[in-house]
Amino acid sequence: MSSSIPVSTLRRFHRSTLHPRNTSRTMATKVERSPAGEGADFRPPWFYTVARVLSWTLIPATGFYGVFIYDFGDHEHVFQPARRWAERQKAAFLTLSAEEKKIVGNETASTKP
């Protein structure tokens, strides 16, 4: 069985990239132990937590803004059905039902002198 790839190249790849213990955690440990200025990560550990939290909040917030708030003009666009649904939900939440109107009507009639 002959191969066109030199054996030294195969050994180099096996040792550096294909070894099962070569994970990102061990690579990060190697970077942290390297002399200062030679590929050391300058960002503090909290930076990654903040970046993750911001990505989990800003991406959905941007989508929400684009679907429900952004003004695309007066013409029909792809988000109109979602906006109509939101308007119906808001109207149902903010308006009184028939029973509630009767209760409010009785209270206001009884409180007037």
Rank of each mutant, 00 (worst) to 15 (best):
L58D: 09
S34T: 07
E87L: 12
A61T: 07
V104P: 02
I59W: 11
V67R: 01
R43W: 09
T108R: 06
A51S: 12
F68E: 00
V104H: 08
A51P: 00
I103Y: 08
S2F: 15
P45K: 03
L58R: 07
K101T: 04
S2P: 12
F68N: 01
S4K: 15
T17E: 09
G66T: 14
T111G: 00
P81C: 01
A40E: 14
A98N: 10
S24T: 10
H77G: 10
L10I: 10
I103Q: 10
T29Y: 03
I59G: 04
I5R: 09
H75S: 13
V7H: 11
T111P: 00
H19Q: 11
V78P: 00
T57F: 07
E99Y: 02
M1A: 12
Y48I: 06
L18F: 14
T108P: 00
R15P: 05
W85F: 04
S2L: 15
K30T: 07
F72S: 09
R88S: 11
E107R: 07
R88F: 07
L96C: 05
F47I: 03
G63Y: 06
W46G: 02
A98W: 13
T49K: 14
A109T: 06
P44G: 12
S110Y: 05
R11T: 14
F47W: 14
F93T: 05
G39C: 01
T108F: 12
H14T: 15
V53F: 11
R88P: 02
L54R: 07
N22H: 08
P20T: 03
K102Q: 09
P113Y: 05
S3A: 12
S4H: 14
S24K: 09
H14D: 15
T62D: 04
H19I: 06
G39K: 02
S97P: 00
F64T: 05
R43A: 11
G63V: 13
R25Q: 10
F68G: 00
E100F: 01
G73E: 03
G63W: 06
A40G: 15
E38D: 13
L10F: 06
H75K: 13
E107F: 08
K102P: 01
P6Q: 06
M27A: 10
G73S: 03
T26K: 06
R15G: 15
E32T: 05
A98P: 14
A82R: 03
P81W: 01
F64Q: 00
L10W: 04
A51V: 09
H75Q: 14
R33W: 02
A28C: 08
